[in-house]
Amino acid sequence: MLRREFLKKAAMLLGGTISASVIAGCMHESIDTPTVFPTKLSSLQKLQLTLLSERIIPRTNTPGAIDAKVPEFIDMLVSKWHTPQERQSFIEGLNDMSTFCDEKFGNSLIDASDAQLDATLSEFESRASSQKNMDNDAIFPMLRELVVVGFFTSKVGVTQSQVQNHMAGQFIGDYPANNVERAFAPFY
Protein backbone atom coordinates (compact mmCIF):
# COMPACT_ATOMS: atom_id res chain seq x y z
CA MET A 1 0.00 0.00 0.00
CA LEU A 2 2.30 2.67 1.25
CA ARG A 3 5.25 0.62 0.27
CA ARG A 4 6.24 2.29 -2.95
CA GLU A 5 6.30 5.79 -1.55
CA PHE A 6 8.01 4.64 1.59
CA LEU A 7 10.72 3.09 -0.49
CA LYS A 8 11.17 6.30 -2.40
CA LYS A 9 11.32 8.14 0.89
CA ALA A 10 13.80 5.64 2.21
CA ALA A 11 15.88 6.08 -0.91
CA MET A 12 15.96 9.80 -0.43
CA LEU A 13 17.04 9.51 3.18
CA LEU A 14 19.60 6.86 2.62
CA GLY A 15 20.93 7.85 -0.74
CA GLY A 16 22.76 4.91 -2.17
CA THR A 17 22.62 2.86 0.95
CA ILE A 18 19.63 0.72 0.22
CA SER A 19 19.19 -1.82 -2.49
CA ALA A 20 16.06 -2.28 -4.46
CA SER A 21 15.88 -5.90 -3.52
CA VAL A 22 13.94 -4.61 -0.57
CA ILE A 23 11.20 -3.89 -3.00
CA ALA A 24 11.01 -7.44 -4.24
CA GLY A 25 7.44 -7.81 -5.23
CA CYS A 26 7.13 -4.26 -6.52
CA MET A 27 9.22 -5.07 -9.53
CA HIS A 28 7.47 -5.97 -12.73
CA GLU A 29 8.74 -9.09 -14.39
CA SER A 30 9.09 -8.68 -18.10
CA ILE A 31 7.66 -11.63 -19.94
CA ASP A 32 8.61 -11.77 -23.56
CA THR A 33 5.93 -13.66 -25.36
CA PRO A 34 6.16 -13.79 -29.12
CA THR A 35 3.18 -11.93 -30.47
CA VAL A 36 1.66 -10.55 -33.60
CA PHE A 37 -0.39 -8.20 -31.46
CA PRO A 38 -0.43 -4.49 -32.41
CA THR A 39 2.51 -2.53 -31.05
CA LYS A 40 0.60 0.70 -30.57
CA LEU A 41 -2.82 2.14 -29.98
CA SER A 42 -5.17 2.80 -32.89
CA SER A 43 -6.68 6.26 -33.38
CA LEU A 44 -9.94 4.96 -31.96
CA GLN A 45 -8.23 3.55 -28.89
CA LYS A 46 -6.40 6.85 -28.35
CA LEU A 47 -9.72 8.63 -28.37
CA GLN A 48 -11.20 6.11 -25.92
CA LEU A 49 -8.16 6.54 -23.71
CA THR A 50 -8.55 10.32 -23.79
CA LEU A 51 -12.17 10.20 -22.71
CA LEU A 52 -11.55 7.71 -19.93
CA SER A 53 -8.45 9.57 -18.64
CA GLU A 54 -10.42 12.76 -18.23
CA ARG A 55 -13.12 10.90 -16.26
CA ILE A 56 -10.43 9.56 -13.91
CA ILE A 57 -8.68 12.92 -13.42
CA PRO A 58 -11.17 15.55 -14.59
CA ARG A 59 -10.56 19.26 -14.88
CA THR A 60 -11.76 20.90 -11.66
CA ASN A 61 -10.49 24.19 -10.28
CA THR A 62 -7.15 22.72 -11.39
CA PRO A 63 -6.37 21.29 -14.83
CA GLY A 64 -7.29 17.72 -15.75
CA ALA A 65 -5.78 14.76 -17.58
CA ILE A 66 -6.29 16.20 -21.04
CA ASP A 67 -4.76 19.54 -20.02
CA ALA A 68 -1.76 17.58 -18.71
CA LYS A 69 -1.44 15.59 -21.96
CA VAL A 70 -1.90 12.36 -20.05
CA PRO A 71 -3.36 10.43 -23.00
CA GLU A 72 -0.31 11.26 -25.12
CA PHE A 73 1.97 10.12 -22.29
CA ILE A 74 0.13 6.82 -21.90
CA ASP A 75 0.10 6.27 -25.66
CA MET A 76 3.88 6.68 -25.64
CA LEU A 77 4.29 4.27 -22.69
CA VAL A 78 2.09 1.66 -24.29
CA SER A 79 3.99 1.69 -27.57
CA LYS A 80 7.52 2.22 -26.25
CA TRP A 81 7.72 1.05 -22.67
CA HIS A 82 5.19 -1.73 -22.11
CA THR A 83 6.30 -5.30 -22.49
CA PRO A 84 4.36 -7.14 -25.19
CA GLN A 85 2.43 -8.86 -22.42
CA GLU A 86 1.49 -5.59 -20.70
CA ARG A 87 0.60 -3.97 -24.00
CA GLN A 88 -1.66 -6.85 -24.91
CA SER A 89 -3.39 -6.72 -21.51
CA PHE A 90 -3.90 -2.99 -21.85
CA ILE A 91 -5.31 -3.08 -25.36
CA GLU A 92 -7.52 -6.07 -24.61
CA GLY A 93 -8.71 -4.30 -21.49
CA LEU A 94 -9.65 -1.20 -23.46
CA ASN A 95 -11.49 -3.40 -25.95
CA ASP A 96 -13.35 -5.13 -23.11
CA MET A 97 -14.48 -1.77 -21.75
CA SER A 98 -15.58 -0.73 -25.20
CA THR A 99 -17.57 -3.94 -25.68
CA PHE A 100 -19.18 -3.55 -22.27
CA CYS A 101 -20.25 0.01 -23.02
CA ASP A 102 -21.66 -1.05 -26.39
CA GLU A 103 -23.65 -3.90 -24.94
CA LYS A 104 -24.83 -2.18 -21.80
CA PHE A 105 -25.71 1.23 -23.20
CA GLY A 106 -25.90 0.66 -26.93
CA ASN A 107 -23.27 3.36 -27.21
CA SER A 108 -19.61 3.09 -28.09
CA LEU A 109 -17.17 4.62 -25.61
CA ILE A 110 -16.63 7.63 -27.82
CA ASP A 111 -20.36 8.31 -28.02
CA ALA A 112 -21.06 7.51 -24.38
CA SER A 113 -22.26 10.13 -21.93
CA ASP A 114 -20.10 11.00 -18.92
CA ALA A 115 -22.44 8.92 -16.78
CA GLN A 116 -22.04 5.94 -19.11
CA LEU A 117 -18.24 6.31 -19.10
CA ASP A 118 -18.30 6.45 -15.30
CA ALA A 119 -20.52 3.39 -15.12
CA THR A 120 -18.10 1.54 -17.38
CA LEU A 121 -15.14 2.50 -15.22
CA SER A 122 -17.01 1.50 -12.05
CA GLU A 123 -17.91 -1.85 -13.55
CA PHE A 124 -14.28 -2.59 -14.31
CA GLU A 125 -13.15 -1.32 -10.94
CA SER A 126 -15.46 -3.76 -9.18
CA ARG A 127 -14.42 -6.58 -11.50
CA ALA A 128 -10.77 -5.92 -10.63
CA SER A 129 -11.37 -5.78 -6.89
CA SER A 130 -13.45 -8.96 -6.93
CA GLN A 131 -10.60 -10.84 -8.55
CA LYS A 132 -8.61 -12.84 -6.07
CA ASN A 133 -5.33 -11.36 -7.21
CA MET A 134 -5.15 -7.70 -8.03
CA ASP A 135 -2.76 -8.56 -10.80
CA ASN A 136 -1.39 -6.29 -13.48
CA ASP A 137 -3.77 -7.69 -16.05
CA ALA A 138 -6.86 -5.96 -14.70
CA ILE A 139 -7.51 -2.94 -16.88
CA PHE A 140 -8.95 -0.56 -14.28
CA PRO A 141 -6.00 -0.46 -11.84
CA MET A 142 -3.60 -0.53 -14.77
CA LEU A 143 -5.31 2.40 -16.50
CA ARG A 144 -5.88 4.37 -13.31
CA GLU A 145 -2.26 4.06 -12.25
CA LEU A 146 -1.04 5.27 -15.64
CA VAL A 147 -3.43 8.23 -15.52
CA VAL A 148 -2.52 9.16 -11.94
CA VAL A 149 1.22 8.90 -12.51
CA GLY A 150 0.93 10.60 -15.88
CA PHE A 151 -1.01 13.45 -14.35
CA PHE A 152 0.87 14.06 -11.11
CA THR A 153 4.27 13.85 -12.81
CA SER A 154 3.28 16.23 -15.61
CA LYS A 155 4.27 19.88 -15.54
CA VAL A 156 0.65 20.85 -15.06
CA GLY A 157 0.24 18.27 -12.30
CA VAL A 158 3.37 19.36 -10.47
CA THR A 159 2.91 23.10 -10.77
CA GLN A 160 -0.88 23.52 -10.66
CA SER A 161 -2.35 20.47 -8.97
CA GLN A 162 0.39 20.43 -6.35
CA VAL A 163 2.63 23.11 -4.87
CA GLN A 164 6.11 23.09 -6.36
CA ASN A 165 8.59 23.88 -3.62
CA HIS A 166 11.80 22.28 -4.81
CA MET A 167 14.02 25.12 -3.75
CA ALA A 168 12.60 25.52 -0.27
CA GLY A 169 15.76 27.06 1.18
CA GLN A 170 14.84 25.81 4.63
CA PHE A 171 13.25 22.87 6.39
CA ILE A 172 10.44 23.46 8.85
CA GLY A 173 9.41 20.30 10.66
CA ASP A 174 6.12 21.59 12.07
CA TYR A 175 4.56 23.75 9.39
CA PRO A 176 0.86 24.72 9.51
CA ALA A 177 -0.95 22.64 6.91
CA ASN A 178 -3.38 25.53 6.42
CA ASN A 179 -0.59 27.65 5.00
CA VAL A 180 -0.70 25.73 1.80
CA GLU A 181 -3.68 25.03 -0.43
CA ARG A 182 -2.50 21.68 -1.76
CA ALA A 183 0.25 19.14 -1.13
CA PHE A 184 3.85 19.93 -1.96
CA ALA A 185 4.95 18.02 -5.05
CA PRO A 186 7.48 15.29 -4.28
CA PHE A 187 10.97 15.86 -5.64
CA TYR A 188 12.57 12.58 -6.62
Partner: peptide, 23 residues
Protein backbone atom coordinates in the same frame (compact mmCIF):
# COMPACT_ATOMS: atom_id res chain seq x y z
CA UNK B 1 1.49 11.94 -0.97
CA UNK B 2 -0.34 10.79 -4.08
CA UNK B 3 2.33 8.20 -4.88
CA UNK B 4 1.11 5.82 -2.22
CA UNK B 5 -2.30 7.29 -1.58
CA UNK B 6 -3.77 6.49 -4.97
CA UNK B 7 -3.18 2.78 -4.53
CA UNK B 8 -5.41 2.32 -1.52
CA UNK B 9 -8.14 4.73 -2.54
CA UNK B 10 -11.20 3.56 -4.38
CA UNK B 11 -12.83 5.30 -7.27
CA UNK B 12 -11.92 7.98 -9.73
CA UNK B 13 -13.09 11.43 -10.73
CA UNK B 14 -13.31 14.74 -8.92
CA UNK B 15 -13.22 13.58 -5.28
CA UNK B 16 -10.50 11.05 -6.02
CA UNK B 17 -8.37 13.69 -7.70
CA UNK B 18 -8.92 16.29 -5.00
CA UNK B 19 -8.00 13.87 -2.23
CA UNK B 20 -4.72 13.14 -4.02
CA UNK B 21 -4.02 16.85 -4.26
CA UNK B 22 -3.92 17.05 -0.47
CA UNK B 23 -1.20 15.80 1.89
Amino acid sequence: DWRSNHENKEGFGKDFKQSLEQP
